[in-house]
């Protein structure tokens, strides 16, 4: 874990209301593992006050990217940040995706800006010799952020403007009909309602599901105890999303215990 002031090397709008920030940190890039996140100060003053937690979207050499929607004051400030300015970043944080155990194919299912952890995960799994497919859903084609680097991607849009008309669960169903479910693990990130629908579907099909959660945090390092999720298994009632998560086997948590972020 590092706290660094790192230079912004790229700031770009990549889809409707979707932005990417890229910055340079050799140390954080070297230490980062897929599923981990960064806690970033939106202002060098204290307004807005808290850091914002973002999944590591992609790592190339000493560059890291985050991807985000502009939803409030903090993200608006990130969108206005210029190349060459510095950001105060704490990371890499959190427990990475659980990649141990038997699987040789991975389907990465994203809803909207839930695409955040997937390119980094996909690149990592390919290097490990796994087969990787992406299933990426959004309301409409204009909200899909793919610069061509997303591996083996299928799209789902609510209005049918790109790819499959419908949601990612329907598209995953189609994928399984085409490709089968042998040796498969699903990794998912997106709105909690989407994750819950996926959870029901994967349980029905007997496919293991790992989810990456979004929730409001303060410190991001386990000291404020502000981001609990209720556990379905084990002795503890809650664990902290920032340190024990944000990546969980879906069956280990009670996702309904977390209120929706927006």
């Amino acid at each position: 874990m590092y706290q660094q002031h790192v230079p912004i090397t790229r700031s770009q709008q990549v889809a409707q209301n979707v932005h990417v920030l890229e910055f340079q940190s050799e140390a954080i890039a070297a230490q980062a593992i897929p599923g981990q996140f960064l806690n970033i100060r939106p202002s060098r003053f204290y307004d807005p006050f808290l850091r914002r937690a973002y999944s590591i979207h992609r790592v190339v050499d000493d560059r890291l990217e985050i991807i985000y929607n502009v939803v409030g004051k903090g993200s608006a400030l990130f969108a206005e940040a210029k190349v060459g300015e510095t950001l105060d970043i704490l990371g890499p944080l959190g427990t990475p995706f659980h990649l141990e155990g038997e699987f040789h194919r991975a389907v990465l299912v994203s809803g909207g800006v839930g695409i955040a952890p997937m390119p980094f995960l996909g690149d990592w799994l390919l290097k490990q010799g796994k087969q990787v497919a992406n299933i990426y859903g959004a309301r409409t084609a204009a909200m899909i952020a793919d610069d061509g680097r997303l591996h083996n991607a299928r799209y789902a849009t609510d209005d049918g403007s790109l790819g499959y008309r419908g949601n990612v669960v329907g598209l995953l169903d189609q994928f399984l009909a085409d490709e089968g479910a042998d040796g498969l693990r699903v990794f998912a990130c997106g709105p909690n309602k989407m994750l819950m629908a996926l959870g029901d579907f994967c349980q029905l099909r007997g496919v293991p599901l790992e989810v990456s959660l979004e929730c409001q945090m303060a410190c991001g390092i386990g000291i404020c105890q502000g981001c609990p999720v209720e556990m379905a298994t084990g002795e503890r009632k809650y664990t902290l999303v920032c340190t024990h998560g944000p990546n969980y086997n879906y069956n280990d948590i009670r996702l309904e215990s977390i209120p929706a972020v927006h």
Partner: peptide
Amino acid sequence: DGNPPQRIAETSSGG
């Protein structure tokens, strides 16, 4: 165990 979520909220007034 502590209280159920949501446990924290940023306020618009610097706190």
